[in-house]
């Protein structure tokens, strides 16, 4: 008993202060939002698009689809001019699929919006989610699970994962939606009482990830469910997921956020 108390004292208080204080520091090599530097980009070159494993880059319009992006380094390594870089902006979640297209002329990054008033009134302080892995590789699942640990303590926002869809306000889905999970996901969705929301976590759930186009998968959950929040990444950093969830529930201070977005931190 005393041993437990002693170790507990040594382990200390570990829950992050975010969002009331700054988020935990991300490593220097963290790959957040990708950017194409137009000044450097050679117009007739397609090296990045050719190297991209998931066709996330349109070298013609110089746009990158965050929904498809694996945040690997294949494009930046292939670019002869070094025009592609990833900054440390972890805020990637969006409410609309089209907001995930990062273009050169897109000055203002559109982040995830709040739920409407009625939904926010229902879920803003208590959101119970049922998680379904539909072909996920256990990386997205693991880093969603991490939010439940004492370091992140998702419960303090009233967000919780529940065991039954009947107890849930929505689904948080990972994986490209394998054909073999299609019926199970559909049935789980049907079992969630209305009104309900869907959160797609990771490149696979948004657009199929590396499995896009395989006959064994449906290339994203949007093929059968209406998605309310897209959280890009392969897998998304827990901070990216937390940021997306808090934005959806309107739990972040809006004025402060916008400023730092245009600064591109």
């Amino acid at each position: 008993m005393f041993k437990e108390i002693l170790v507990r004292m040594k382990q200390g208080h570990r829950t992050i202060r975010f969002p009331r204080a700054a988020p935990p520091a991300l490593p220097d090599r963290f790959r957040g939002r990708p950017r194409i530097d137009v000044e450097k980009c050679g117009a007739s070159c397609h090296a990045c698009a050719d190297a991209c494993p998931v066709a996330a880059i349109d070298s013609g319009t110089r746009t990158i689809d965050l929904g498809k992006c694996l945040f690997c380094t294949d494009c930046s390594d292939a670019c002869p001019e070094g025009a592609i870089s990833f900054d440390k902006d972890y805020r990637l979640a969006a409410s609309h699929r089209s907001d995930l297209l990062v273009g050169v002329d897109q000055r203002e990054t559109v982040l995830a919006a709040e739920l409407d008033r009625r939904m926010k009134r229902l879920f803003g302080r208590s959101l119970k989610l049922r998680q379904v892995s539909a072909g996920g590789c256990n990386a997205c699942e693991a880093d969603v699970n991490v939010l439940g640990t004492i370091g992140w303590d998702l419960g303090r926002f009233g967000i919780q994962f529940v065991a039954s869809p009947r107890h849930a306000d929505g689904l948080l889905v990972t994986g490209p939606l394998t054909r073999n999970m299609e019926l199970a996901l559909k049935k789980t969705w049907d079992a969630v009482p209305d009104p309900k929301i869907v959160i797609a976590v990771g490149a696979c759930a948004i657009a199929g990830g590396p499995y896009a186009g395989h006959e064994q998968v449906r290339s994203g959950i949007e093929s059968i469910l209406p998605v309310d929040l897209y959280i890009p990444g392969c897998p998304p950093h827990p901070l990216t997921t937390l940021d997306g969830l808090l934005r959806l529930l309107g739990r972040l201070e809006r004025g402060k956020e916008r400023k730092s977005v245009s600064a591109g931190t």
């Binding site: 494993p53 294949d74 072909g135 394998t178 998968v217």
Partner: peptide, 19 residues
């Protein structure tokens, strides 16, 4: 099992590819 089947081995054929 089999619910997670994504066709990896089949897709590796004719590789190495970008994926």
């Amino acid at each position: 099992l089999g619910f997670q089947h994504r066709g990896i081995e089949k897709a590796m054929e004719a590789g190495p590819s970008t994926r």
